[in-house]
Design a protein around this nucleic acid. Structure first.
Lengths: 122, 122
DNA sequence: ATGGATGGTTACTTTTTCGTGCCTACTTAT
DNA sequence: ATAAGTAGGCACGAAAAAGTAACCATCCAT
């Protein structure tokens, strides 16, 4: 028996959706560059693996944040784009982005960052 | 050469701060119940381990989202509370929470959920 | 003196995730 | 014919994160 289920609020679900390393970036790419195909997305999110990109897209699609359009041509062309819920999300994420920018300007994020983020060195 | 560093925006930093399984719940507890001591927080977030609670609190404090007040009594009493940045965050998180509630009402979150969330069975 | 509470830290172990490589199935280019 | 591209799926291993337990130092109650 695991019994995690920490919050009573659905907040956790939505955060779980957005939390992954690349998720919001994918949303930003789709919101900024419009509907795109899988390969274009992969190129627009440099460093992501196909595995994770696929997983993220499926999650977002399952939650109705993005849509997926697959044409049954012989090399199947799949296009992804923001759905209505993606737009809901985009607005909140923009607010969050503004806060993030202000904080970065003020020098938060200097002392934390658990992962190897912002380590452009090799 | 890892070269992750996906986004050019500081969005990722702030998300990394909030992403952990319990982080926003801790913020909600602090915002809802006011400044509290470590033990009270741990009790208010049932299921969290001291390790993760400590880590989250330190991250949040390092980012200036919460403050930490330690009285040098003999069993040291440490109190945490929302700082100004926590209030910035709280507003956005409330918007996100509203969206999350609406989505849950509409039945998003039915088909995804990568983890064992909402599986109260053993 | 022993046990419990406070507020953690550290080490050990497990769980989960992520990256990589290999595979499909078909088409186009060479 | 072979290689590459399209859109992933699958499996293995590595890495990171999280849980667990023990421990610290001190005080109070028993």
């Amino acid at each position: 028996m695991k019994q995690k289920t920490p919050p009573a609020c659905p907040m956790d679900s939505i955060l779980r959706l957005l939390m992954g390393p690349w998720t919001t970036y994918i949303l930003w790419v789709l919101s900024d560059g419009g509907p795109q195909r899988f390969g274009a997305l992969k190129r627009a999110v440099p460093g992501i693996s196909t595995r994770v990109l696929t997983e993220r897209l499926r999650m977002l699609q399952a939650a109705g944040v993005i849509w997926r359009d697959q044409t049954q041509t012989i090399p199947p062309a799949v296009t992804y784009g923001l759905a209505e819920r993606g737009d809901d999300l985009r607005q909140v994420l923009e607010s969050l982005g503004e806060i993030a920018q202000r904080w970065q300007y003020e020098g938060a994020f200097e002392t934390d960052l658990p992962r190897d983020f912002s380590s452009t060195v090799d």
